[in-house]
Each structure stands twice: as C-alpha cells, then as structure tokens.
C-alpha cells in the first residue's frame, strides 16, 4: 500500500523515533554549509564594482527571503494535509513552521533596510515588493496568534490552517511584484530560465548559502516539531518510558 509511509509519518511516535537518528547529521551539515558559505561569500568573493562591500548582505538577505517564501508553502501545505487527512503530525509541523518563517521574513526585511540606506538612500519605501513582504510577516504572526487564540486545539489548528491557505496567494505576488509593477527593488538576479545577472564568483557562494539555509530550515523545523510532539504526547506511555530510560 503506497499510503503506508504517509500515515506512518503522520504518527507522532513513528516520526519522533525515525528522526532521532537524522538530527545530528542535519545539524552538522547545516553548520558546515553555513560556515563555508559565509566564509566564501564574506571573505573570498570579490567586491561589487558599484556597491563595494555593502552588496555582501546578499549572502544573508537572499537566502532568508527564499526560505521565508518556501517556508510559507511548507506551513500552508502541512496545514492542508492536516485538514484533509487529519494526521496529527502535520498540524504540529504547521505550528512549528510559523515562528521560523516569521524570523526569516524579519531577517530579510531588516537586512534589506540596512542595505537600502547606503544603496538607495532610504531605509524603507512602500513599494510592491517590500510591502508584500511586510504582509507576509503579518501573515506569519497571524497564524501564530490564531494558534494561541483558541482553547480547543482542533479549532485552533483548523483556523490557522485556513489563514495559512488564504495567505498562499501572497507568495506569487511577492515573487512577481518586481516584474509586474515599477518598484524601487530590483528584479531577480538569480533566474531559472535564463542566465543569472551575477558574476559566477559571487553566484556560487550565494547558491551555497541558499542550500545552507534550506538545510538549516529543515533542521530547525524538525527540532521544533519534535519538541511539539513531546509536549503534546507527554502523558502517553512511550514518552514516559523514554523519559525514565534516559
């Protein structure tokens, strides 16, 4: 039966026990990738002909923004799976993804402001890209707030899953905003359909940082989900046995 693994992953105990072995590997891999990527990007990549060294914020700004968008889909899709199949773990993944996404969105807004001041001459401008990114930040905060606004867990999960699903509309808008409207924010540098407009000596460390952020995201998401599982199942027999065994 093809659905077996799917339902197994939906079981908190199975998920927790399976991922225990993965955690140290994921953790080590994300640290290594982050160190190599930052050293390469901040120390060895050449400076930009016009911006000098201030462009180096790209190595944090772009990966954080990538994951802020991708993380939203992860949150919304796990919310949808929770609504359709009512598997226990998927709502816990959704709940864990919201604060991580909020932090990443904040990081990309903050690094963008720090970069904007010397480059554009302003910290903040209400253009389509920056405003839609701010809306994404509020959507993440909204999901977190809804999650805590209900006493009954199932209503809380359902309400925040619906908000997460409605908010998915914002993701393509953020992504395409720089092409659809006149914005101060420049269009995408890394392009999937044509040549990227960045020198290879800067592109490879940037791509490495994107991969590093993906692995870091997976690690933190899994860590948070495992904590949620333990907190939720604290009265169950297998958690008690594990706690007394260690």
């Amino acid at each position: 039966m093809a659905w077996t693994w799917f339902h197994q992953f939906g079981s908190p105990r199975w998920f927790y026990e399976k991922t225990t072995a993965w955690m140290p590997w994921l953790f080590a891999l994300s640290i290594i990738l982050l160190i190599v990527g930052s050293a390469w990007g901040l120390g060895f990549a050449p400076s930009d002909s016009k911006q000098g060294n201030s462009y180096r914020i790209i190595f944090i700004h772009v990966p954080a923004a990538f994951l802020a968008l991708a993380g939203y889909y992860i949150m919304a899709i796990s919310g949808a799976i929770g609504m359709i199949w009512k598997t226990k773990v998927s709502y816990l993944v959704m709940r864990s993804a919201a604060p991580i996404g909020a932090v990443l969105t904040f990081v990309s807004l903050f690094t963008g402001a720090v970069w904007g001041k010397p480059t554009w001459g302003t910290w903040w401008v209400w253009d389509a890209r920056i405003t839609s990114m701010l809306i994404l930040f509020f959507l993440y905060l909204g999901v977190m707030a809804l999650q805590n606004a209900f006493n009954h867990e199932e209503s809380a999960n359902k309400a925040s899953a619906i908000l997460a699903l409605v908010g998915t509309v914002n993701i393509p808008i953020i992504y395409k905003s720089v092409d659809w409207w006149y914005t101060l924010h420049q269009p995408a540098t890394i392009k999937f359909t044509e040549d990227s407009t960045i020198d290879p000596s800067m592109k490879y460390p940037l791509l490495l940082m994107v991969v590093a952020f993906y692995v870091l995201y997976a690690t933190v998401l899994m860590m948070r989900t495992r904590t949620e599982i333990i907190a939720r199942e604290r009265k169950s027999k297998w958690v008690k046995e594990m706690a007394t065994a260690s």
Binding site: S47, S49, T119, L184, D199
Partner: peptide, 17 residues
C-alpha cells in the same frame, strides 16, 4: 528626496573594467 535604484547586476570591479 532622491533615491538611487540599483539593478540586478553584480560584477567584480576587474570584470567591469
């Protein structure tokens, strides 16, 4: 207020020269 609009191109100084 005057703002500079940056473009999507990133090049090292040597390549630009």
């Amino acid at each position: 207020q005057v703002l500079a609009k940056h473009d999507e191109n990133y090049t090292p100084p040597e390549v630009a020269d």
